[in-house]
Every structure is written in structure tokens, then in C-alpha cells.
Design a protein around this nucleic acid. Structure first.
Lengths: 189, 189
DNA sequence: GAATTCATTTGCCATTTGGCAAAAAGCAAT
DNA sequence: ATTGCTTTTTGCCAAATGGCAAATGAATTC
């Protein structure tokens, strides 16, 4: 829980009473490997925060290939924003890649907190724009680089993830085949 | 100006007085082809709205290649958010690709409006998250597709842009060379 | 520790894309 | 029309990546 408090206080100040209100609403949960935090075709109902483990967000493209859009590791927020905010069906699966421990807020509690803690609104907005900008900045440069550079970028962005997840997920994140990724790893050593 | 009002009212309601306050702060400007709306190394000072023309956001990667990150065409907001919000130097150039007509707000005016028009805050937050999510959703899928599919995606996303801008910009947006793009176009016909 | 299952690497060859330079096409000014 | 300039297309070959199947390795269960 401390990790979460530290995280949100990066984005603005709250007094102890406000922090208490927020933490009182936070629940802890475990999400076993391969299970879903939220699913395509459904409306996201929760905001989560990863205490332990790795999550991935993925979808299926027109050819039916499974594409990993990004990973979320420790001390990061996990929420399908478009679905959660606008109450529309998601097109992505949010799935535990390892056993995970999460904090989470129900949509009802989350909105209630926004109503009763005015400075919380500004903090959430900063977090949201930070998280989204980060996603653009991480994913976008992959388009213009070759496979080796992409893999190096992955290692930089997610330094603590590579040894905990299947290579096939990394390959689908990078937009290359698993065999190519394997060969690239051989060359880098 | 009407285009801008229509745009913002999609995201929430404002009364006439509030609309007047906002429009009074909006200025019009022309941005000739190739000139910059904001530049790498500087702090973004304006929020813009494209009335006419096409803008692109680009940067230089480690190899010195110029990469187009995205385009912004008519009736869309143009702002280097991370730089504008956090007063940090941008790493991207925001450049007119054709002669442009823009509305714009200075940072001072923009912040003032946020202070005095309470519902405007919520609208801006919705716009920001919409714009950012759109950037992720547009750019991200390119990573996993082949060059022909990428080009088709570009055409879908920016249907009114292809005939107005140099192919080299499109190629750099798609992460392929201009000659490859040219060959792809030949095959598609 | 053998057997089973799953993840990763490798080999082979086909396909796609890149790099470079020249040719062709389009455009604007004279 | 002609010239000069920029953009786009092409040709040629090299390099990168994909597709598929088999082999290897690692982890798990009995």
C-alpha cells in the first residue's frame, strides 16, 4: 500500500485524511498467471495498481494474431481507460503474465473519491496523461526501428521483465516472430 | 471558430457566456508550409486547433533519421502536451506540412480559462485523454503489420491527407523507405 | 529418473524490405 | 516550350525477416 501512496503523491499533495479516504477504498487481490483483469467485449470495471507481477494488454488483429500492446509491471497503474471512462466495450484483454498481487478500486468507489476529494481530481488527471503519454512514447518509436533495436528498446523500458515472461509475448510486442527474436538474442550475446 | 466550438461541445456542455469567454481568448494565425508550431528543445507555449491544413509531429532518432510520429489534420487539437503541461523541453518538432490556418491559445490564457470556467476543466481532461488514446490506438498497431497493411491503415486514419503531403513523410510515419512505399502503391493499384 | 509437456533455438529456403543511384514525372518560373 | 528544381518511381542487388518443421532444452508430473 505504501508503494501506491508514494506513487500518487508524486503527482500532487494530499493530507493524511484524504490519503486515508483513498486507502480505505483500496482492496487487495491476487490474480493468478494467465487470468484476466479485464476482457475484450466487456466494460472495464476496475482501476488497478500492480504491487507484484507482470500484466500485459493484448488483442487480436485481423489475421487472428495475438498482439501484445504493452506490459505493466510493478508500481504502475493498470486500467483500460477508454472502456472504464466511457463505459464502452473494450477491445483488449488485460491478462496476468505471472502471478500478480494488485490493489484495485471499483468504478463506484473510484468515482466517489473523485467527487469528495477535490485535489484527487487533478492528481488523477496528471496520472492519466502521464500514463498515456508514456504509452505513446514507448510504443511509437518501435515502428521506425529494426528488430534488434526494438529488442534493445524493450530491454531498456522493461528491464525487470525479460526473465519472467515467455519470449513469444515479447516477440508479439515487438512485431516480430519468435524465431527472429531468438536469433537476435543469439547475436547480441 | 464554429468548428472549434462544435469540437469542444462534443465533450461536455458550456453555456453561451462560457463559450464567449473561451472564444474571446482564441486567436487566429496562419502557419506557412514547413514552419514550426513548436520546436524540439523549447517549451511548448500554445494550444492550437487546426482549421485548415496538415501538421506533423516529428523527431530525429539515434541514427539521425527524421521520423514522423503523427499527423494532425483539420478539426483537431495540436499541442505538445508533455512539454506544455510540465514546462519541460520538447523533443519533437511540430511542423506545418501544408499552409495552415490555426486557432491558438497562449499558455497564460489557457490556464486562466481553466481557473475561471469550472466545467471547462472536465472538458479539457476528456479531450486530452481522447487525443492521447487516439494516438496510442493509431500508432501502436503499425508495429505488428507488414508494410502494405500499414499503408492501408494510414489511408483509413488520414483519408484526406495522402494527396496533400510528400510521400517521404508518409514513409517515415510508416517506418518504411520511400522506395518501398512507392512499390507498395504500385501494387495496390 | 522417465515420460510428458511446454518453451526456445536452429536450419532451410522464400519473401519482404532496404540501400543506392538513375530515370521519369510533376511543377513552377521564365 | 525550356529550364531548373523537387518528388516519385524503378532497377539492381544485399540484408533482414518470415514460415515451417525439427531439434534441443527446461520444467513438471508420475
Amino acid at each position: 500500500m505504501k508503494a501506491f501512496i508514494d506513487y500518487i503523491l508524486q503527482f500532487g499533495d494530499l493530507n493524511q485524511q484524504q490519503i486515508d479516504l483513498i486507502t480505505k477504498k483500496a482492496e487487495e487481490m491476487t490474480l493468478p498467471k494467465d487470468e484476466y483483469f479485464s476482457e475484450a467485449g466487456k466494460i472495464a470495471q476496475q482501476v488497478g495498481f500492480v504491487l507484484e507481477g507482470v500484466i500485459r494488454v493484448c488483442y487480436y488483429n485481423n489475421k487472428g494474431e495475438e498482439i501484445t500492446k504493452y506490459f505493466i509491471d510493478e508500481n504502475n497503474l493498470v486500467v483500460d481507460l477508454e472502456s472504464f471512462n466511457n463505459d464502452i466495450c473494450s477491445n483488449a484483454y488485460v491478462q496476468a503474465v505471472t502471478d500478480c498481487k494488485l490493489l484495485f478500486f471499483s468504478k463506484k468507489d473510484w468515482k466517489e473519491l473523485l467527487d469528495i476529494i477535490i485535489p484527487w481530481q487533478a492528481i488523477v488527471n496528471k496520472i492519466v496523461s502521464r500514463v498515456l503519454i508514456q504509452k505513446v512514447e514507448r510504443r511509437s518509436p518501435l515502428v521506425s526501428e529494426d528488430a534488434t533495436t526494438r529488442y534493445r528498446m524493450f530491454l531498456k523500458i522493461y528491464p525487470n521483465v525479460i526473465n519472467r515472461i515467455p519470449l513469444s509475448y515479447v516477440a508479439s510486442y515487438l512485431g516480430i516472430t519468435q524465431s527472429s527474436l531468438s536469433r537476435i538474442r543469439k547475436n547480441i550475446r
